[in-house]
Design a protein around this nucleic acid. Structure first.
Length: 826
RNA sequence: GCGAGAGUGGCGGAAUGGCAGACGCGCUAGACUUAGGAUCUAGUGGGUAACACCCGUGGGGGUUCAAAUCCCCCCUUUCGCACCA
């Protein structure tokens, strides 16, 4: 044994061996059940950080554990390689995005290797590779042909800094998700995907995703934002026009005292023209619409409005009510118009108070609280002031009112979603070109599939203005129409990179297939992903888009599965000094430095031990040293016994005449194995490591015995092997090294997960806690499996218990067999 | 404001109705040693002379023989959504 553990030499040695022998390669297996373990593929930003390390370490443990447990495991990795940072590097430093990306991938691939992750590298894919984006384009065309990709002119979110539009999902509180620049509105013709067609299924299927964190499902539910109500038709007084209003509170429709339109509402121009206040109203509209999205939607912004001078008729009560324009009505939700029920809606109440609009209660609380003009009542209750419905429960009246309105053509039931169609056009260079041309005579024409890919030109120049260079390459822009062969112009926008990442998990099943995106049979063999691991920041965007794609592909007969990810694990962040590690905060822990100082095994072990996978944890270098120390302890234990055993003899059942201490030790080994197996299954990785540490501590106490007698030595031998096998998924290098030191010639990573010997778990005696009035007062040993009566009387015979009980009356005795006796005295 | 999670020693955390603080860090002492930032051994929630006993899982109340764990109210904190009619 060498004094110092030369992790760097050993780790790279084993990495080389694993690669050369291809032990992590996986192909469909005739007998073994499949298991698809996947971590979200990274953007090649240049280097791996601790967040990556944690993510991939967790995924690697899962993959390795399943492999040892007899599954045929697919565990691939690739690169989400299109995106803005590459382009920024080009603009700022003159490096072509393709070169920048290539260098970064090479560097990060090296870091992945150094971490000892068990990937099947033959399956590596990169989304910027023409062999990959060809199929991203093909997918776009599939969507296009099924009417799910369409082009329309719309108010879109424009980030002035990124010089591109953003999907709604990429706007966070009015700011660009990437660069936090304030997002502006622009009217542009853009490509959208009809994800809203799938809103109901995206929502309903969530209930079946039992392996997903509730938190993520709730976020998706909120994002889809389904709400059911009615669209009521309000006729305008004196004209034939009508305003439709969406409401979920049609039980309060008799309480409507005014309507409010969004400034953008299509009737606004018509109803205000000619009004004496037209100028003031136009001024108000200009002011509101000129405001940024944040200013307009912040709840700090006061609700303001102006009367239009027009009136509408309440379809139910027949009352004439004024029409207003308000800053708080959103043009893109529902019908862009709302009914004001100040008695039963907080916002309407504030608005009505401010402008002196009437407040008319129509629902009375069931408990006899007073409804007044100075209080809002938003809960259900009993209908009042609603001729024909008075006295009914408001929740019941909802249906009756809806029926009534539908019968008389006053409105209909309607469902609204907050989810909007996915805007995928990006005015950027470094992305997959949208495979479309615009022909003067044929209009929008799809590129035929056999002409894919539409290649992204690589020799381009960047202007500091930040505009996509594609517009300035005549050879790219000017083309021929595939239909009529006439002159045509290519679409110069590229696709949102989320399109690339919405299907990569399918491509991994057939990464090099050239004539198809994938082979249906192979994809169906591997999919769905059994365990997906990644950051919670993708809870909505990536995870919902991927679900949408998978459903679509299922519907057009290209995939069996309807959901891509059966189980999802969202890992917590790695913090330093209480905050997220980030370059700008200057609290980065450098992975390379850590690997150089401690080695991959130690870094992996610490990140997995520090806290449960789904919780945040604080980086602590002393903790890293603790992990390193533990590995040293394991290593010393094994070297101490390395030469004590004959390794051809592996039949543990044949252990002769175990002394009670030996049996006890062996029981500890197998109870640990039992706990570790159970905890791995539920991804409680930190407690797995703790349990192994505890076992190793016990084995240290057992060293003398193990040397002194043969039976104990055998127990030690078995224990050592099980310890290495249990640690193998966590620290693959050192366990591999020590496994070979023990005399095994094949890789530990090809071993089966050890079996729990149920007979070793047997315990003749158990410790029983004795409580008096719920407080622990004594303990005793008793044979296992003794009944209530036995334990009760045994407990009462204990001296200390006698003292406590004295001659007080025993009121009750509770017994938990093999665990506890609680004596209740007065 | 709404929704979800979290709150346990000096620190990271364990225990999901039955011994609170497993395991690790840190700290204390001892052994080995030329040396110790290596290693091994022991100790380490607070009060206390004490291994007795009392107190103790954000605060308050409750259910129970028994509560960190279940219920109610409140506080703090993190994350998500935020005028969605």
């Amino acid at each position: 044994m060498e004094d110092k553990y030369d992790f760097s030499g050993l780790e790279s040695k084993w990495q080389r061996v694993w690669e050369e022998t291809g032990i992590y390669h996986s192909d469909p297996h005739p007998v073994k059940p499949k298991y698809y373990a996947l971590e979200m593929f990274p953007y090649p930003s240049g280097r791996l950080h601790m967040g990556h390390t944690r993510n991939y370490a967790i995924g690697d443990v899962i993959a390795r554990f399943r492999r040892m447990s007899g599954f045929c495991v697919l565990h691939p990795i690739g690169w989400d390689a299109f995106g803005l940072p590459a382009e920024n590097a080009a603009i700022e430093r003159g490096i072509p995005p393709s070169d920048w990306t290539k260098t970064n991938i090479e560097h990060m691939r090296e870091q992945f290797r150094r971490l000892g992750l068990s990937y099947d590298w033959r399956r590596e894919v990169a989304s910027h590779h023409p062999g990959y984006y060809k199929w991203t384009q093909w997918l776009f065309l599939r969507l296009f042909k099924h009417g799910l990709a369409y082009r329309k002119k719309a108010q879109v979110n424009w980030c002035p800094d990124c010089q591109t539009v953003l999907a709604n999902e990429q706007v966070v509180q009015g700011l660009c998700e990437r660069c936090s620049t304030e997002v502006k509105k622009r009217e542009l013709k853009q490509w959208f995907l009809r994800i809203t067609d799938y809103a109901d299924r995206l929502l309903e299927n969530l209930d079946n995703l039992e392996g997903w964190p509730e938190k993520v499902k709730i976020m998706q539910r909120n994002w889809i934002g389904k709400s059911e109500g009615i669209e009521a038709i309000f006729k305008l007084k004196g004209t034939n026009d009508e305003v439709k209003v969406f409401t979920t509170r049609h039980d309060t429709i008799f309480g409507v005292t005014y309507l409010v339109l969004a400034p953008e509402h299509r009737l606004v121009g018509k109803i205000i023209s000619g009004s004496p206040e037209e100028q003031e109203i136009r001024e108000f509209i200009r002011e509101v619409t000129g405001k940024s999205e944040i200013d307009r939607t912040s709840d700090l912004t006061e609700k303001t409005g102006v009367p239009t001078g027009a009136y509408a008729i309440n379809p139910m009560s027949g009352e004439t009510i004024p029409i207003w324009i308000g800053n708080y009505v959103l043009p893109h939700y529902g019908t862009g118009a709302v009914m004001g029920v100040p008695a039963h809606d907080q916002r309407d109440f504030e608005f009505a108070k401010k402008y002196g609009l009437p407040i008319k209660p129509v629902i009375s609380p069931k408990t006899q609280t007073k409804v007044g003009e100075d209080k809002v009542y938003e809960d259900p209750g009993i209908m009042i002031n609603s001729p024909g419905f008075n006295g009914t429960e408001s929740e019941v009246a909802k249906d009756a009112i809806a029926d009534f309105m539908e019968k008389r053509g006053l409105g209909n039931r309607a469902t609204n979603y907050r989810l909007r169609d996915w805007l995928i056009s990006r005015q950027r260079y470094w992305g997959a070109p949208i495979p479309i041309v615009y022909c003067n005579s044929c209009g929008i024409v799809a590129i035929p599939e056999n002409e894919l890919p539409v290649r992204l030109p690589l020799d381009v120049e960047f202007t500091p203005g930040g505009q996509s260079p594609l517009n300035y390459i005549p050879e790219f822009v000017n083309t021929r129409c595939p239909k009529c062969n006439g002159p045509a112009k290519r679409e110069t926008d590229t696709m949102d990179t989320f399109m690339c990442s919405s299907w990569y998990y399918i491509r991994f099943t057939c990464p090099r297939m050239e004539d198809k995106a994938w082979d249906r049979e192979t994809a169906d063999y591997w999919l769905p992903v059994d365990q997906y691991t990644g950051g919670v920041e993708h809870a909505i965007l990536h995870l919902m888009y991927s679900r949408f794609f998978t459903m679509f592909l299922h519907d057009i007969g290209l995939l069996k599965t309807e959901e891509p990810f059966a189980r999802l694990l969202t890992q917590g962040m790695v913090l330093k000094d209480g905050i997220k590690m980030s370059k700008s905060k200057g609290n980065i822990v450098d992975l390379k430095e850590m690997l150089d100082t401690y080695g991959a095994d130690t870094v992996r072990l610490f990140t997995l031990f520090a806290s449960p996978p789904d919780r945040d944890f604080e980086w602590n270098e002393q903790g890293v040293e603790g992990a390193s120390r533990f590995l040293g302890r394991v290593r010393r234990l094994i070297y101490e016994f390395q030469h004590e055993f004959n390794h051809s003899d592996t039949d543990y059942k044949d252990i002769p005449e175990l002394m009670p201490e030996d049996k006890e030790m062996r029981r500890k080994v197998h109870t640990t194995l039992e706990k570790v197996t159970k905890d791995l299954d539920r991804y409680s990785l930190n407690t797995v490591i703790a349990a192994v540490m505890e076992l190793v501590n016990s084995l240290y106490q057992f060293r003398e015995a193990a040397k002194a007698r043969v039976s104990a030595g055998k127990v030690m031998k078995e224990a050592i092997e099980i310890v290495l096998l249990m640690l193998a998924p966590f620290v693959p290098h050192i366990t591999e090294e020590l496994w070979h030191e023990l005399g095994f010639t094949d890789s530990i990573h090809k071993e089966d997960w050890p079996d729990i010997d149920k007979s070793a778990l047997f315990e003749a005696e158990v410790e029983i806690v004795i409580q008096v009035n719920g407080r622990v007062r004594d303990r005793m040993y008793a044979p296992k499996g003794k009944d209530h009566k036995y334990l009760e009387s045994a407990a009462l015979k204990q001296d200390r218990i006698k003292e406590f009980v004295g001659n007080k009356e025993i009121r009750n005795v509770f017994v938990v067999p093999d665990k506890l006796v609680n004596i209740v005295i007065s």
